[in-house]
C-alpha cells in the first residue's frame, strides 16, 4: 500500500489540514442543499457537519483516500457515457422479438489495491454495458455478462485504468489506452 504513492502532480489536496477543510466545506454544501437557505437550520447544521467531518476522517483517513480532480473530470463523462450505453444495451435485448442473450461468467484479476479503490471498481462494473460483478475473492472478480461476444476485457481494463486515475494509484494498465 505504501508504494502506491500519489503519482498525480495536480493533486491539490494532499495536506491533512487542507483535506479536513475540504471535507468540512463539502459537508456544509450538502447540508445547505438538503436543508435549504433557512439560516436557523445551521443551529443543528454546524454540529452535524463537524461531526460528519470528524467521523469521515476517522473512517477514511486522507492518507488512504485520495481523489484526483483531473481523474474525476475524466471519469465522470466516461461513466455517464458507459452507463447510458449499458441502458441502451439492456433496452435492445429486452425489447427485441428474438432472444438476444448469450450469458456467461468471466473471471478477471484486478491490480487495484485492496480497499476503497477495489470496492468502487467492483460496484461500477455493474453499471457498464453487459457486465455485472457477481463475486469478489481477493483480487479475483467474477463477472456475469449478458453476451459473451462483447469485448468485456477491454471494457473492464479501461474502467480499471479510469478508477486508478481517479484514486491516484500509479496506474496498472496505462498502455491499454
Amino acid at each position: 500500500m505504501q508504494n502506491n504513492s500519489c503519482s498525480c502532480k495536480n493533486n491539490i489536496c494532499s495536506h491533512p489540514v487542507q483535506q479536513t477543510l475540504l471535507r468540512f466545506s463539502l459537508f456544509s454544501f450538502l447540508w445547505y442543499t438538503l436543508a435549504g437557505p433557512d439560516k436557523t437550520s445551521w443551529i443543528i447544521g454546524i454540529p452535524a457537519v463537524a461531526f460528519a467531518t470528524v467521523l469521515s476522517q476517522m473512517l477514511a483517513p486522507s492518507s488512504r483516500l485520495r481523489i484526483s480532480p483531473v481523474g474525476a473530470l475524466h471519469f465522470i463523462p466516461f461513466f455517464l457515457r458507459q452507463s447510458f450505453l449499458g441502458g441502451i444495451d439492456v433496452m435492445r435485448r429486452a425489447l427485441s422479438f428474438r432472444q438476444l442473450l448469450n450469458p456467461g461468467l468471466v473471471s478477471y484479476t484486478t491490480q487495484l489495491p485492496e480497499g476503497s479503490a477495489r470496492i468502487f471498481f467492483v460496484n461500477t462494473i455493474s453499471l457498464l454495458p453487459g457486465t455485472l460483478s457477481a463475486e469478489l475473492h481477493g483480487n479475483q472478480v467474477t463477472i456475469h455478462t449478458l453476451d459473451l461476444s462483447l469485448s468485456i476485457w477491454a471494457n473492464i481494463q479501461r474502467l480499471e485504468y479510469h478508477v486508478a486515475a481517479l484514486m491516484c494509484i500509479s496506474s496498472p494498465g496505462k498502455e491499454n489506452i
Binding site: S83, F84, G86, G87, I88, D89, V90, M91, A94, S126, L127, P129, G130, L132, H144, L146
Partner: peptide, 9 residues
Amino acid sequence: HALTKADNV
C-alpha cells in the same frame, strides 16, 4: 442486469 442498468439510466 435489466433492473440495475435500465432503471438507473
